[in-house]
């Protein structure tokens, strides 16, 4: 029975979960992530051999410059990329499941733009704010973006259709970006802000990683804990209620997770878009419809993809780093187009 419906899933309509594939992806994904992290540490303005990387991590010698570079510059960068990638992808998976919208992504839905606006406000009016406060402001900004988008979307008569949500997201992003631009131009912080907004992993410090990690890890754990409910929500509100879910509570909890995940990541790596769009689709394609598997797999694959994008951005032009957000957009735009066009064809 199980294999029969699984083979049915291959033909387009997926109705089952594939735990075996999921476990495989988690294991292979983690191995690939570690490899990618090692490569990411070794490439850059100074190339460092993988041997040295190994030694720097496990037999640290403070007298060697290469070990210093690895410890102080590259390790935090790699860790931040993994954390932010996992967070963006998990946030995307939660949103797609909760809203039943295949085009949901924190970048498309204006959440990143909201966090960006609040950071611009911080840069302009309260320069020198400690990082922890920056992060809290970013959460508030993310919430602002989400409230506008979902508010406008859900006030409408026809409910939240994917198109409506995307349009509301585009308009909200335009609004928030315009205000951000206004602040940037008026206070002449445009260039700093642009570098940060474009998605920069270059200046990540240990302190930021230390502050970022607990938020993201706790939220990821929370997402996994809620994943059963998210699966039920993804079947539709009526079914979820019928199966005993308190959907208001679950949705509120999910929204909170998304805001913290996206807001925290934006405050460290900038507004990296499209990760949350691509990865959950890939994960769903690979492991089926159960969010208990989709969310952890998304987190691992998201971490891997951001790590790879970061490597790609540095290889593309080692001296002047290409913003990693541009790399993810390069991957994400064709994917978004594919989804948008496929959706129309099937309906």
């Amino acid at each position: 029975m199980n294999s029969e419906s699984a083979s049915h899933g291959e033909s387009g309509l997926q109705t089952t979960a594939r735990p075996l594939a999921a476990v495989l992806i988690l294991v292979l994904g983690l191995v690939a992530l570690i490899l990618a992290a090692a490569v990411s540490i070794s490439v850059g303005a100074t190339d460092i051999s993988l041997d040295t990387v190994w030694n720097a991590v496990f037999h640290f010698n403070p007298d060697l410059t290469t070990h210093q570079i690895i410890r102080e510059l590259r390790l935090p960068r790699v860790l931040a990329a993994a954390l932010a990638g996992a967070a963006f992808a998990a946030a995307g998976a939660i949103m797609q499941g909760m809203t039943r919208n295949p085009l949901a992504d924190s970048g498309i839905l204006g959440i990143n733009a909201g966090a960006g606006l609040m950071l611009a406000v911080c840069f302009a009016f309260m320069p020198g704010l400690p990082f922890i406060s920056l992060m809290l402001f970013a959460f508030a900004g993310a919430a602002l973006g989400a409230v506008i988008v979902f508010g406008a979307g859900s006030m409408s008569r026809g409910g939240l259709s994917p198109l409506r949500l995307v349009l509301a997201g585009a308009a909200t992003s335009a609004l928030l970006l315009a205000i951000t631009d206004g602040i940037a131009i008026h206070y002449q912080i445009g260039r700093d802000l642009a570098f940060w907004f474009a998605g920069g992993l270059a200046g990540v410090s240990w302190e930021q990683v230390r502050l970022l990690a607990p938020w993201i890890l706790v939220c990821l754990a929370g997402a996994v804990a809620l994943s059963r409910s998210i699966t039920l929500l993804s079947l539709g509100n009526d079914i979820a209620i019928g199966l005993g879910q308190r959907i208001g509570l679950v949705k509120a909890a999910c929204t909170l997770l998304v805001l913290v995940l996206a807001g925290a990541s934006v405050s460290v790596v900038g507004a990296v878009g499209f990760l949350g769009l691509i990865i959950p689709h890939v994960a769903r394609y690979l492991v089926g419809v159960d969010y208990r598997w989709i969310i952890p797999c998304s987190a691992v694959l998201g971490a891997l993809l951001l790590e790879l994008s970061d490597i790609g951005a540095r290889l593309f032009n080692p001296m002047a780093e290409t913003p990693v957000g541009a790399v993810t957009a390069l991957l994400g735009v064709p994917f978004f187009l594919y989804l948008a066009m496929r959706d129309r064809r099937s309906s």
């Binding site: 198109l163 585009a170 570098f195 474009a198 002047a320 978004f336 187009l337 948008a340």
Partner: peptide
């Protein structure tokens, strides 16, 4: 609908390129 979605996607792509160039 397709036109709106495609337009949003293309705009996002172009904006990413614009960002790279402005930096």
């Amino acid at each position: 609908i397709r036109m709106l979605l495609v337009g949003i996607a293309i705009a996002a792509g172009i904006n990413a390129l614009t960002l790279v160039l402005t930096l």
